[in-house]
């Protein structure tokens, strides 16, 4: 009977070990101790980021979106949730971005001369000669969204004048030691944002993670960062693309009028205020703002259907609130948007 008892204890131990293992798997990764790094001043860190050239790298980027934006057709990344992208770049003009979904994948490849876009669900390949492509860089606008390096660098340049910038310790991001650069709004700024944290790789001085925290919430409103990254030369075959058999190849056109002309047929937007409480005021194309008039394509979101109705001395319209920004669209087509709180 003694062996029976020890056997039962051992069996129970195995079962408990399984439960503990499940708990360990569920625990958030990277909860290790903060790495020790030589201290650096914020100015040095920011300028080293602005001048850094990380060279070739490949990795996985995860976007954790809790902005509370309304769902936009054709852009699953914009609505709340988690999405991932796999990115590779040779540090120069060539690059590859793969956006997996549960049943398919979109692949964007820039091989230096041609930009290829593959959509597995429609099995089409769109080919755009690189010279005509507006952004030129790896993957164009989609890559700029998915690449935390570009996103964080732009943000740093814009926020430097009105922000308190500090280096708040270190962290481990994607298995690499990183400095935590914190940008907080100056006390005079009235904004929905609490702080923006950028984790900067200690060695390559490349932003690895961008976290946007809003007031009144401990969870990030937006987190975009690498979950896995490797620096150094990448597999050459990643930077070329051959349309697979059975695919439809279309010659894409560079989007007309986008690079030079106005982004939409409204007046040029005016910027009111500066720093964190900047408000952008613009006039929307009349058919998009006025409810019931104009014919909208099915896949174009109508601004008139979003948000809650508001009115005031300025007229009436609809207010769209998200975790980090508020926008008001008036019935006569004016738009005001900024990272400010609504007064009501």
């Amino acid at each position: 009977m003694a062996t029976g008892r020890t056997g039962r204890i051992a069996a129970a131990g195995v079962a408990v070990a399984g439960l503990v293992g499940l708990g360990l798997l569920a625990a958030p990764a990277g909860a290790g101790a903060a790495p020790e790094l030589p201290p650096v001043s914020p100015e040095d860190l920011v300028s080293s980021v602005l001048t850094a050239d990380p060279g070739a790298f490949g990795g996985t980027v995860e976007l954790d979106n809790a902005l509370g934006l309304p769902a936009l057709p054709g852009m699953p990344q914009a609505s709340d949730g988690t999405s991932t992208a796999r990115v590779w770049t040779d540090g120069d003009r060539r690059g590859r971005v793969q956006l997996p979904t549960s049943n398919g994948e979109r692949t964007l490849v820039s091989d230096g001369q041609t930009f290829w876009a593959w959509d597995s669900e429609s099995r089409t390949v769109t080919r755009v000669p690189e010279g005509e492509h507006p952004q030129g860089g790896p993957g164009g606008p989609d890559a700029a969204n998915a690449d935390p390096a570009a996103a964080a660098t732009q943000l740093l340049a814009a926020l430097r004048p009105t922000s308190e910038i500090s280096v708040d310790g270190t962290a481990e991001v994607a298995g690499r030691p990183a400095y935590e650069l914190v940008l907080a709004p100056a006390a005079s700024e009235r904004t929905l944002l609490r702080e923006v944290r950028v984790a900067v790789d200690a060695e390559h001085r490349m932003p690895l993670q961008l976290t946007v925290l809003a007031t009144g919430s401990s969870d990030p409103a937006l987190q975009l960062g690498f979950t896995d990254i490797s620096f150094g030369a990448q597999d050459e075959s990643l930077f070329s693309f051959t349309p697979p058999p059975g695919a439809t190849v279309e010659d894409g056109q560079a989007p007309e009028g986008r690079p030079g002309g106005a982004p939409f047929q409204g007046t040029e937007p005016t910027v009111v205020g500066d720093g964190w409480d900047t408000v952008v005021v613009a006039t929307a194309p009349a058919d998009a703002a006025a409810p019931g008039t104009g014919e909208l394509d099915g896949d174009e979101p109508s601004l008139a259907q979003l948000g809650t109705p508001v009115s005031g001395p300025w007229g009436s319209g609809r207010m769209i609130s998200t975790a980090v920004a508020t926008a008001i669209v008036t019935d006569d087509g004016r738009i005001a948007a900024g990272a400010c709180r609504s007064r009501s």
């Binding site: 070990a17 399984g18 499940l22």
Partner: peptide
């Protein structure tokens, strides 16, 4: 982990 839990309980 599930195998460990199920197997342990079974034994």
């Amino acid at each position: 982990c599930y195998v460990a839990v199920g197997g342990g309980l079974t034994i």
